[in-house]
């Protein structure tokens, strides 16, 4: 369970990333976070695994108070939370399996870490994760020879092999064509249902968000302006999230936020 209690995040340059966020996500939920670029979607995601520190409020993940974590505890904590990026962030010069196994590196003994030799159990776990996303046959191919969709599935397998409770996905399909994007979203949905892993996913495409997620969180200028089941999302709500004026079915601060909407180009 992820619980934001009155969380705010202010960047050193004064930019407000998150403002009084209250949010509770149960284990196994599939949540899509939508909003304009710069609205705070990435900040919200990156606070969960402490890639960003929060400025005030309380954030607990599975009962752990994230703000209290230090050094080694952060690394151990992060290894249970998978993360997926828009640009895949793979080592392109290494094989697919090599990329997947990086996820298990923190658990290896020191000499294995030095030499980069993985035990057979790790290799089997890696192959299993690749099988799970349907690219087992590419295990020994170099990543730079794969298509974008295949690369994102390698990234997905990389998080799966760590046996995470939560997967954070930051614009996972923004760099993919519509058909491939659907395939990758299917993978997310299957993993969410079969393995009961919570998925928090930032996404630009509202139609994809509505088609796949159970719950939609709308964010505008660091504030949550909508939070509800996918079935409750209407065109007005989407307009409200993206333009900042309109209907009343908004949870959270009801008063209209400042007139001008700042959009990071």
């Amino acid at each position: 369970m992820i619980k934001f209690e009155n969380v705010s995040k202010i960047y050193p340059n004064g930019h407000v990333g998150l403002k009084n966020v209250d949010l509770q996500i149960e284990q196994g939920e599939f949540v899509a976070i939508i909003g304009l670029s710069g609205a705070g979607k990435s900040t919200l995601l990156r606070c969960v695994n402490k890639m960003h520190d929060i400025s005030s409020g309380k954030l607990t993940v599975n009962g752990v108070d994230v703000t209290q974590l230090k050094g080694k505890e952060i690394r151990r904590f992060r290894s249970k939370i998978g993360m997926i990026f828009q640009s895949f962030n793979l080592i392109t010069r290494t094989t697919v399996l090599g990329n997947v196994l990086v996820s298990l590196v923190p658990e290896l003994s020191w000499w294995r870490r030095l030499l980069g030799v993985y035990p057979a159990t790790a290799k089997i776990a890696g192959l299993k994760a690749l099988d799970n996303v349907g690219i087992l046959d590419k295990a020994y191919t170099r990543v730079d020879q794969l298509s974008g969709g295949q690369q994102q599935r390698v990234a997905l397998a990389r998080t799966l092999v760590g046996d995470p409770d939560i997967i954070l996905a930051d614009e996972p399909v923004a760099a993919l064509d519509p058909v491939t994007a659907k395939i990758v979203m299917d993978d997310f949905q299957r993993i969410n249902r079969e393995m009961n892993i919570s998925i928090l996913l930032n996404i630009h495409h509202v139609d994809l968000a509505v088609a796949y997620a159970d719950r939609i969180v709308g964010i505008r200028q660091g504030e949550i302006v909508f939070d509800g089941p996918t079935s409750a999302v209407t065109q007005e709500i989407i307009d409200e999230i993206y333009q900042g004026h309109g209907s009343s079915s908004i949870k959270g601060s009801a008063e209209p936020v400042a007139a001008e909407v700042v959009v990071d180009a």
Partner: peptide, 14 residues
């Protein structure tokens, strides 16, 4: 070769 739990066999490329 490595055998996966679901029975699939992968030839390891050393």
């Amino acid at each position: 070769t490595l055998t996966l739990p679901n029975g699939k066999v992968v030839t390891e490329q050393r």
